[in-house]
Design a protein around this nucleic acid. Sequence first.
DNA 1: TCTGGGGTCCTAGGACCC
DNA 2: TCTGGGGTCCTAGGACCC
Length: 427
Amino acid sequence: MRKRILALVDGNNFYVSCERVFNPRLEGQPVVVLSNNDGCAIARSQEAKALGIAMGQPWFQIRHMERKYGLTAFSSNYALYADMSNRMMSILSQFAPAQEVYSIDECFLDLTGLNVDLTAHGHALRDRVKQWIGIPTCVGIGHSKTQAKLANHIAKKRPEWNGVCDLSSLPESTVNELMASIDVGEVWGVGQKLTERLNALGIQTVLDLKRADPKVIQRRFSVVLERTVWELRGIACLRLEDVSPPRQQIISSRSFGRPVTELNELKEAVTAYMSRAAEKLRRQGSIAQALHVHIRTSPFREDRPYYGKGLTIPLITPTDDTRKLVKAALKGLEAIYQPGHDYQKAGVVLMDIQPKDSGQITDMITALEDDKATRVMQMMDAINARMGKTTIRLAGEGVEKAWAMRRGRVSAVSSTRIDDVAEVCAR
DNA sequence: TCTGGGGTCCTAGGACCC
DNA sequence: TCTGGGGTCCTAGGACCC
């Protein structure tokens, strides 16, 4: 059987690169993008990494670097990043017969059977993305997803590769040398806990893991890690998922901009979060038969007792109706709410998700009601799609939204909103 | 003062059944 | 006094990823 050839392409410091496209003065400067609520750094430029800023580091710990080192920070602007991502994925799709969009900033490409110089092909797609949308990328190529991931890591960390590393064209001995020089913790699927356990067994490098006995790994760890061993050896165990399966659960949860104590405000937040989750549910043509609602105080405050609780609620009949889902979620919220706490976060999860048109047997009255509800929801979604999110929403979401998150440093959505384009041009 | 959000998969263990 | 064992289903929690 012919070996597969897979590439992993990803945007370097993707969110930061998106901001730089519309603000070229940030080139060469330390830049971070902050999480929701401007809580912590979730993307860092090379210069920011060089300052020692860690992934996920709280903003309050690094904000002094603004003055000291000229650090620039942005609130996350997901509308912008999603739009840039779509453009990037669309360009990359031209370079391979099959593509799996793996996350907002990376995709796998199936290059099997392509009669080209793979390294040259990698440089060509990299140049195209840079030229057309201004995003720098790196390309890793190998015989499996895990190899492609590893190759991408090499392309990113070692400048001598010029952003493209093709393990599939290298002699086995060279690949092994590279693998011997990389910690096992860099392997896709090996996190902190597994690294510790592997190290305890004397498995320190990627090569050590590649050479481990798959059966022993399966017995002492899991079938997942056994698969990783085969993948490192160039035997592809993971398929390219070019059609994205519908979500099995849909989460909507957020920290508040300030502590919330009143049940009424929590109700507003849960109503808003469930509304967003239900929109996603309908967009993928599904219904949910259970939901989960949770609230908690800040786990970082040592001066107050922690309180967190969640409740899963089964629904008698599965639905995609925002009103029914909100009603159930609020009932759950009332059951877990305790007065006297400073709540910091709330969230909802839609679960037991099924396709809507699965041909379930219902009685005629239920069918008529469902039909009416479907039309109401369709109309709501259509209006919101045209006029902007939350143009029409449930009254329970509230108007003031004093609990809403802080986003003090958000950039303009330069690629999609015409008002913002004007703003960028006026700079 | 200030610490993200959204996912997947696997495993262990309990409940239940025969 | 003796007090099974194996299979299946479900759930909670762990680990990982970006």
